Computed example of a mutant assay.
Amino acid sequence: MSSSEEAELSYEAARAELVEVVAALESGGTTLEESLALWERGERLATICQTWLDGARERLDLVIAGDAASEDAPDAD
C-alpha cells in the first residue's frame, strides 16, 4: 500500500487492520521477516490512527473554545 493510500485510510479502516496485524503477531507461526513486516505495518497503522485522533481532539477543542467565547460575549440586545 502506498503512502497516499495509507493517508486516505479512515480511522475505522486503519484500526480494523491494526487489530488484524496484532492478532497475526500474537498468534505466531510467522517467519522473522513476516513478523518484522507486520510490526512495521502495525506501526504505520498506529500512526494513522493517532493522527486521526489528534485531528479529532483539535476539532473538539476548537468547538469548545468557540462555544466558550460565544458564552462570554456580551449580548447584542
Rank of each mutant, 00 (worst) to 15 (best):
43 E>T: 14
1 M>F: 10
16 A>W: 04
12 E>I: 05
23 A>N: 05
61 D>Q: 05
47 T>V: 13
23 A>Q: 03
64 I>D: 12
11 Y>H: 14
64 I>F: 07
19 V>Q: 08
31 T>A: 06
58 E>F: 07
24 A>S: 11
33 E>M: 08
18 L>C: 03
73 A>I: 11
15 R>C: 01
69 A>N: 08
26 E>K: 12
36 L>E: 14
21 V>N: 03
11 Y>P: 02
66 G>S: 14
30 T>W: 11
51 T>I: 01
9 L>Y: 13
17 E>N: 08
71 E>T: 00
41 R>S: 12
5 E>G: 15
10 S>A: 11
72 D>A: 14
37 A>G: 13
33 E>D: 06
51 T>H: 00
65 A>D: 13
19 V>Y: 04
40 E>W: 05
45 L>H: 09
35 S>L: 10
28 G>D: 02
75 D>P: 08
64 I>P: 02
63 V>A: 13
73 A>L: 15
41 R>T: 14
45 L>S: 06
11 Y>K: 07
46 A>Q: 15
63 V>L: 14
17 E>H: 04
15 R>G: 05
34 E>G: 11
8 E>A: 15
4 S>P: 15
19 V>P: 03
32 L>Q: 14
8 E>C: 10
69 A>E: 01
2 S>A: 15
29 G>C: 00
67 D>I: 04
63 V>C: 12
12 E>V: 01
73 A>V: 09
25 L>A: 03
44 R>L: 14
2 S>C: 12
19 V>N: 05
48 I>S: 14
18 L>R: 11
29 G>Y: 00
68 A>V: 03
25 L>H: 02
25 L>F: 01
73 A>N: 10
15 R>K: 12
27 S>Q: 15
40 E>R: 04
66 G>D: 10
41 R>E: 15
59 R>L: 05
21 V>C: 02
47 T>C: 09
46 A>R: 12
59 R>V: 06
32 L>V: 13
33 E>F: 03
56 A>F: 01
2 S>K: 10
11 Y>I: 00
44 R>C: 09
12 E>Q: 05
40 E>S: 09
5 E>F: 11
66 G>R: 02
42 G>T: 11
76 A>S: 14
70 S>G: 04
55 G>Q: 05
50 Q>K: 07
61 D>C: 03
56 A>E: 01
18 L>F: 07
6 E>H: 10
26 E>A: 08
44 R>S: 14
67 D>Q: 14
64 I>Y: 08
64 I>M: 09
61 D>H: 03
19 V>T: 00
43 E>W: 03
29 G>E: 02
9 L>T: 12
62 L>A: 13
49 C>I: 08
23 A>W: 00
29 G>M: 02
13 A>L: 10
77 D>I: 11
29 G>D: 00
72 D>L: 07
30 T>I: 08
72 D>C: 09
13 A>F: 06
75 D>A: 14
56 A>N: 04
60 L>Q: 12
5 E>R: 15
39 W>G: 15
45 L>N: 13
44 R>W: 10
